[in-house]
C-alpha cells in the first residue's frame, strides 16, 4: 500500500481539469504520468501531494484519506518537486537542500550531524556538492532543478512526486537523475514529456488525456502506434531497443497535407 487516487476530480476556474482519475503506485515502483500539454499531469501531482483538495473522489496514503493526515507527517512521507521553483531570497544551494530537513526538525531542535550528513549525501547524489555554496540566482536551469531534487531527497520521503524533473537538464543529467530515482527505494510518481525516457525508466505508465485516464499499464502496452496517433497526434515507429531492451519510439515527421 502506498499512494493512490480513487475516482479523483478537480476543477479550476470553472474548467474540469481532472475527472474520475484512478491510479495506484505500487511500493518501490516508478509510475510515469504521460499525456499532452494540459492533460492534467501537474494538477494530479498536486492533488497526490495534498497541496490541493480534491473536488470529488479521494487521495489515500496507505489507505488513509490524505486530507486527514497532519501537514507535518505528510511532509515527512511525501516529497514534491514542482516544475518551476523561483525565489527572490539570496539562498545558496545548501540553504535550499537544507529546507528538506524542515519537516523532520522540532521547533527548538538545532541542526545536527545526521541532518548534515544526509544533506551532504544527497548533494553528492545530484552532483551539486561542489556548487553547494553558490547562490540560487547564479545557477543554470538544470542546476536549480537538481537542487530541488536534492531538497526533496533530503526530506527522506517514502513517496516522491516529480513534475517534469528532466526539464532544463542536459541529456547526461536527464539519464543520471532518472537512473538515481530508479535506484532509490522509494515509490515515485513522475510526470514526463519525453516518452522514450518514460519507457526506459518507468515500471508502469498512466496516459492522461483531457483530465481522464486514457489507459494504464506497462510501457509497451500503453504506448502503441495507434494511441500515439490518437492522443498526441504523431506518427511513430515503435520497437524494442536492441541496446537497452526496452520500448523505443522513433517519431516520424508530420506528413505535409
Amino acid at each position: 500500500m502506498t499512494i493512490a487516487a480513487r475516482n479523483v476530480g478537480w476543477s479550476a476556474g470553472g474548467r474540469m481539469v481532472l475527472d474520475g482519475v484512478t491510479l495506484e503506485a505500487a511500493p518501490g515502483q516508478v509510475l510515469g504520468l504521460i499525456g499532452p500539454n494540459g492533460s492534467g499531469k501537474s494538477s494530479l501531482l498536486r492533488l497526490l501531494a495534498g497541496l490541493r483538495r480534491v473536488a470529488s473522489g479521494v487521495v489515500t496514503l496507505d489507505g488513509r484519506n490524505i486530507d486527514r493526515c497532519p501537514r507535518g507527517a505528510l511532509a515527512r512521507r511525501v516529497a514534491m518537486v514542482e516544475q518551476q521553483a523561483a525565489t527572490e531570497a539570496p539562498v545558496t544551494v545548501l540553504d535550499v537542500v537544507r529546507l528538506g530537513r524542515v519537516p523532520h526538525r522540532g521547533l527548538f531542535s538545532s541542526w545536527n550531524a545526521p541532518d548534515g550528513a544526509l544533506v551532504d549525501q544527497v548533494l553528492c547524489h545530484v552532483g551539486l556538492h561542489a556548487l553547494r555554496h553558490r547562490l540560487w540566482h547564479t545557477l543554470s536551469g538544470g542546476e536549480r532543478q537538481r537542487a530541488q531534487i536534492a531538497r526533496a531527497l533530503a526530506q527522506h520521503p517514502q513517496e516522491l512526486l516529480l513534475d517534469e524533473p528532466t526539464n532544463h537538464l542536459d541529456v547526461q543529467h536527464q539519464l543520471e537523475i532518472l537512473a538515481l530515482i530508479r535506484r532509490l527505494p522509494v515509490t515515485t510518481v513522475v510526470a514526463l514529456h519525453d516518452l522514450n525516457l518514460a519507457a526506459m525508466f518507468c515500471d508502469n505508465l498512466v496516459l492522461l488525456q483531457n483530465g481522464r485516464v486514457r489507459t494504464a499499464g506497462a510501457p509497451a502496452d500503453v504506448l502503441t502506434r495507434q494511441r500515439l496517433l490518437e492522443v498526441f497526434g504523431v506518427s511513430a515507429h515503435l520497437g524494442i531497443s536492441p541496446h537497452h531492451g526496452r520500448l523505443h519510439i522513433q517519431f516520424l515527421p508530420p506528413q505535409p497535407r
Binding site: R46, A49, G50, L51, R71, G72, A73, L74, A75, R76, V78, A79, M80, E82, A85, A86, T87, A89, V91, D95, V96, L99, G100, V102, P103, R105, L107, Q155
Partner: peptide, 19 residues
Amino acid sequence: RALDAFAFGPDAAMALGIR
C-alpha cells in the same frame, strides 16, 4: 523556520509541512 520554508512560495512551504 517556517519563514525559511516560504522561500519558494506558499505551495513549497506547504509541501514542507508548514500550515
